[in-house]
Design a protein around this nucleic acid. Sequence first.
DNA 1: CAGTTATTTCAAATTATTATGAAATGCTTA
DNA 2: TAAGCATTTCATAATAATTTGAAATAACTG
Lengths: 126, 126
Amino acid sequence: MTGNTSKECLNKTPIPEQVQLELSEIGGLSGLCNCLPTDDELQKICEQHHALSDPIRMKILYLVRIQSLCVCVIKACIGIADSKLSYHLAIMKKTGLISSHQEGNYIIYSITEEGKKNASGYATNE
Amino acid sequence: MTGNTSKECLNKTPIPEQVQLELSEIGGLSGLCNCLPTDDELQKICEQHHALSDPIRMKILYLVRIQSLCVCVIKACIGIADSKLSYHLAIMKKTGLISSHQEGNYIIYSITEEGKKNASGYATNE
DNA sequence: CAGTTATTTCAAATTATTATGAAATGCTTA
DNA sequence: TAAGCATTTCATAATAATTTGAAATAACTG
């Protein structure tokens, strides 16, 4: 409907035939662009990947996949400063990979369903 | 074998009972730590997520999922400077999300199997 | 209530990532 | 082979993410 199925006015040189052909079939440039997620969707997807793009956070994810853990145990396991750990936990919580609840003085972090989807490929335990 | 199944010497206060209990079952702190991927594995996983953590790159991924495309068509679709696009394409290629081949003056980028795994959840077309 | 503990918050310093525009590369055609 | 084209490379500037350590919270204990 909106697609320009003749040569797109992209270049001075004709673009490779195969590309042009396939492009025509999906409604030209505008047809192609319509396949993109919205900016909001993109942002959400990317935010999730960003949360998963740091080795410290990935370690945390793999740990809480085994069992729910208080901050001090996570700290003992990966050996970083409290504030640093807190920073990373906050990012993961914000994007929904983990959740937390308080138990006395302790705060216990658990993996979420969303988090489980992204910690695959390794045995949970021996 | 290596796990300390009695109270781990983490804190001055005893850690929450449930956490302690589950921890004992998997061989204590050391048992828990053994569930972590190696540094190399972690780095590889995180690098992949990093490549997916930018909206421009995610757009590119969704575009080449529809069909193989030359740089100029991608550029026409998302409207950014050549060098910027090149920068992002290079990151995606390095992490194996896309591959490229030359056709005359044009370079055509295609999604890889690895890339397909990470561009799910949207119709390919329509 | 005063002190201790586990965790978070904050501002500043550090480091990593991205953007920009000019120049370079490599292919193609006349 | 000179000129044009699509794309990349490079150095630098701009921006964003992470680290750090000190101070703040909030829950518990005596």
